[in-house]
Design a binder for these strands. Structure first.
Length: 831
RNA sequence: GCCGGAGUGGCGGAAUGGUUUACGCAGAGGACUUAAAAUCCUUGCCCGCAAAGGGUUGUGGGUUCGAAUCCCACCUCCGGCACCA
């Protein structure tokens, strides 16, 4: 028997598979299609992470099983290669990001190939390839034309020392990651995508897809639909009634989901950014203090604003009061950063008796707390946020919250409205390594007022680059640092910025911001269907054949943003009749992170990063694949344990030896033992079902149990049994099973890979056990157990149980009041 | 702070209303060997030679003949975040 040399065997079969192209997906086929997909990696300089291996192995197993089940299977891969780390590396080393990206993708490709994934490498894509991002830009222009892209002022994180804008990720504890300087907020005009226009569609679409429940609820909560009301609070000036006739509206509009608590509103709070404040400047007597607070709020980063959640801050707008429209009482007006300008109307009515944040605020600033809902509450230290019957609410006393909501809105003349938490998507980055935004600003056309699309009308002067001029390629730059005015590095290249207007041919300037790296990943699943197409992002027929993605697995950390963004793009393209399905993914699952030893996150700085290369070299790809599948429940985070992998190595060694032993003795007629046969069929059933639910850990363990059993009953184990075992093991450990299949399998003229054989079916009649272990309990405690026939009746079992010495002894003279019988499991005697 | 998950032997985990600890790792004892590695067998919560008994699924309560599993409150860890009224 030859030694099991994983290095040699794995290399050998990887070469054969590649040469024979056994994993190639066909664009037309009589077979049913199956599209399995994993999140394509960001090719970082650190190389492949064992976390990638976890996800890619699991979907590889699914894809291999589908092929064996007779599907024309697409399992593609590519590179999501735009992004900050590469750009920051370029800034440091002055090496062009394109070169770094090439280097990193070469490493990743080699690593992925060494693990034996059944990717169709003919369809490899790269988001930084101009032939790819041409179409990212093209789709952006479609969004622009449809009026879903617009320029708006937003705040960015600004490092006053480095003089650059920072991503949220680069802000650590409110300070710049590189230099530690306190980060400020700066206003900047940015391109926005109106994802909010799709809020309802994104929400209702969730009902039509098969996502893990956590992903669905996370998305639902993120979209955050809530029915509420807009109510007007009159603003009264304290100095003189005369001012009320001034030029500004003398009311403020608030949004609430709890109109039923209106009588308990004891003050109004505005977001510091609320435009109302400026308009009332002359009438606010403490305007200096207010201005100071607004400036403070602006300085804070989002993270700071969040971490300060425990301690509420705010300033009263002195000199003005609001009128509670329900009871006409005068109440104070405050500003506080716990109210956000971007949600609702940027103003709230505060009901401290029935809202936790309002309660904390009122306690701190000694504002009155008036309960208006009957419920368990003590004014002392908590508030009641539930619903109930109204009190202290005039003629609404006794009405239930549900009913009171609409009645009170009607009573004071407010509007019932629907709000979404979802906000529009900031689509500009003042960076280099991203897709250029293919728009040109033309002063002349802005004045002309001749618009060819809704997008041009909303954004006067912004003209799309002509389709035959796409892609707008990234120009070469020497320095990648953004400029100290906060513009992208592209802004410094005058020869690139200054162009002829695509419309009037006059002098014009390019947009210098680039797209976020969410852009390329928002539609990549479409490009896989036709990756080399030069005329369209993908051919309509091929899209129809392949989409939607049947099963998409990715990280828990992407269940909100990436998933939502790509659903948005796909839904938009569907509305434009450019893709055949509304939803891009039929099924979505998520894998948990792989942590370092002891449950700490793997990171370079902690030095606990496991390199798959060394594991493959020492134990083999098959052992690594099995180990990662065996580690724990797939959807949960797991800690890496370097000792565990030897168990997989031993298992594979035993498979190797056992198959060779079978090969040497398989001549002669043997009858398989009934017991082994039953376990085989049970295992086929269990592995088949476990793969569908990604319960890979229990699938592997059941394969181990079968091997243990076959080893014990070596004499009764036939070649047919072993072959079926190899077939169900093959998706997990593709290399060793291919080698052994060639040894044991049928020899035919044409070479056949184990991975293209049929997936074995189990026989329903063969999986049923003839007996089971009956447990006897007394008052719920286990006292005895014995084997009984599967179809024994309750009477027979009761007789048997009562006649057991052990039970007789335990019961003594105590009468049994009740007997609970659970067929196939237990009998419980209650005394 | 908010949203979504998770807590079971020395360790990773299995069991989703019915025998807690399958499978694997580490440990202990034994077989083979001059010896070691590898391999195989046994063992593996506590008390006990054993039989018997008792304890145990983050903590505290509840529902049930019976709870790791369902309900309530709390603690700790992981992922996400835009204090969303």
């Amino acid at each position: 028997m030859p030694r099991y040399n994983h290095q040699k065997i794995e290399k050998k079969w990887q070469a054969v598979w590649e040469k024979k192209r056994i994993y190639r997906a066909l664009d037309s086929s009589k077979k049913k299609k199956y599209y399995a997909m994993v999140e394509f990696p960001y090719p970082s300089g650190d190389g492949l992470h064992v976390g990638h291996v976890r996800s890619y192995t699991a979907m590889d197993i699914v894809a291999r099983k589908r092929r064996m089940e007779g599907y024309n299977t697409l399992y593609p891969i590519g590179w999501d290669a735009f992004g900050l780390p590469t750009e920051n590396y370029a800034i440091k080393t002055k090496i062009h990001p394109r070169i770094v990206t090439k280097r990193n993708t070469d490493i990743f490709r080699r690593q992925l190939k060494s693990l034996g994934f059944s990717f169709d490498w003919d369809r490899e894509i790269n988001t930084t390839d101009p032939a790819y991002y041409k179409w990212t830009q093209w789709i952006f222009l479609k969004l622009f034309e449809a009026g879903l892209a617009y320029k708006a002022k937003t705040t960015i994180n600004w490092c006053p020392k480095d003089k650059i804008g920072l991503a949220n990720e680069e802000v650590v504890g409110g300070a710049c990651e590189r230099c530690g300087t306190q980060v400020e907020k700066r206003e900047k005009e940015q391109w926005m995508l109106r994802i909010t226009a799709y809020a309802e569609k994104l929400l209702s679409g969730l009902e039509t897809v098969d996502y893990i429940p956590e992903a669905k609820t996370q998305q639902e909560h993120w979209i955050g639909k809530s029915e509420g009301a807009e109510l007007r609070f009159e603003i009264r000036d304290m100095k003189s009634e005369m001012v009320r006739q001034a030029h500004h509206e003398n009311f403020v509009e608030i949004f609430t989901t709890r109109a039923d608590t209106l009588f308990g509103a004891t003050y109004v709070v505005l977001a510091p950014e609320h435009e109302f404040i400026k308009n009332y400047e002359s009438r606010i007597t403490n305007y200096e203090e207010v201005k100071k607070y607004i400036a403070e709020a602006k300085k804070k980063t989002d993270i700071e604003r969040t971490s300060e959640s425990k301690e509420k801050t705010g300033v009263e707008l002195k000199g003005i009061k609001a009128i509670n429209p329900a009871n006409k009482k005068e109440i104070p007006v405050w500003i506080s950063d716990y109210v956000l300008a971007g949600y609702g109307t940027g103003a709230i009515m505060a009901v401290p008796a029935h809202d936790d944040r309002d309660f904390a605020f009122a306690k701190k600033f000694n504002l009155p707390i008036i309960p208006v809902i009957e419920g368990e509450m003590s004014i002392g230290d908590s508030c009641y946020t539930g619903e109930g019957r109204l009190i202290n609410s005039g003629k609404f006393n006794g009405t239930h919250s549900q009913k009171a909501k609409s009645e009170i809105v009607k009573f004071i003349g407010g509007n019932i409205t629907t709000q979404y938490k979802l906000r529009d998507w900031v689509f500009s980055r003042q960076r280099y390594w991203g897709e250029p935004i293919p728009l040109v600003y033309c002063e002349h056309c802005a004045k002309e007022q001749k618009f060819k699309s809704l997008g041009e009308k909303i954004n006067p002067g912004w003209i799309p680059v002509l389709e035959n001029h796409l892609p707008v390629e990234l120009p070469n730059v020497k320095k990648y640092l953004p400029t100290d005015t906060g513009e992208s590095p592209l802004a410094t290249i005058k020869s690139w910025v200054n162009v002829r207007c695509p419309r009037c041919k006059g002098e014009a300037q390019r947009e210098t911001d680039v797209m976020p790296n969410w852009a390329g990943s928002s539609w990549y699943f479409l490009r896989y269907t036709d990756p080399k197409n030069k005329k369209a992002f993908a051919d309509a027929k091929k899209l129809k054949h392949w989409t939607a993605v049947d099963w998409y697995n990715g990280g828990m950390e992407h269940t909100v943003l990436h998933l939502l963004y790509s659903r948005f793009w796909n839904q938009f393209l569907f509305d434009q009749k450019l893709v055949p399905t509304r939803e891009p993914y039929k099924k979505r699952t998520s894998h948990g992170l792989i942590m370092g030893e002891g449950g700490i996150k793997m990171s370079k700085s902690k030095g606990n990063v496991v390199n798959p290369d060394s594991v493959v070299k020492e134990f083999g790809a098959d052992a690594l694949r099995l180990y990662e599948m065996f580690l724990g429940p797939f959807n949960q985070p797991v800690a890496w344990d370097p000792r565990g992998i030897v168990g997989m190595e031993r298992f594979l060694e035993r498979v190797w030896k056992f198959c060779h032993a079978t090969y040497n003795t398989q001549q002669g007629t043997k009858k398989p033992s009934e017991h082994t046969e039953r376990l085989l069929h049970q295992t086929i059933k269990k592995v088949s079902e476990d793969i569908e639910h990604l319960r890979m850990n229990t699938a592997v363990s059941s394969l181990m149990i079968l091997l243990n059993e076959m080893e014990k009953n070596r004499e009764q184990c036939t070649g047919a049994t072993v072959k079926k075992f190899l077939l169900v093991l093959s998706p997990f450990a593709p290399h060793i099973t291919e080698e052994l299949w060639q040894l044991l399998g049928e020899k035919s003229a044409k070479w056949r890979s184990v991975h293209l054989e049929s997936w074995p079916k189990y026989d329903k009649r063969k999986i049923i056990d003839t007996t089971f272990t009956l447990v006897v309990q007394i008052n719920g405690k286990v006292r005895d157990s014995f084997e009984v026939l599967q179809h024994a009746t309750q009477k027979e079992i009761e007789m048997l149980a009562f006649s057991r010495d052990h039970i007789k002894q335990a019961l003594g003279n105590i009468p049994v009041k009740k007997v609970i019988f659970v067929p196939g499991r237990l009998i419980n005697m209650v005394t």
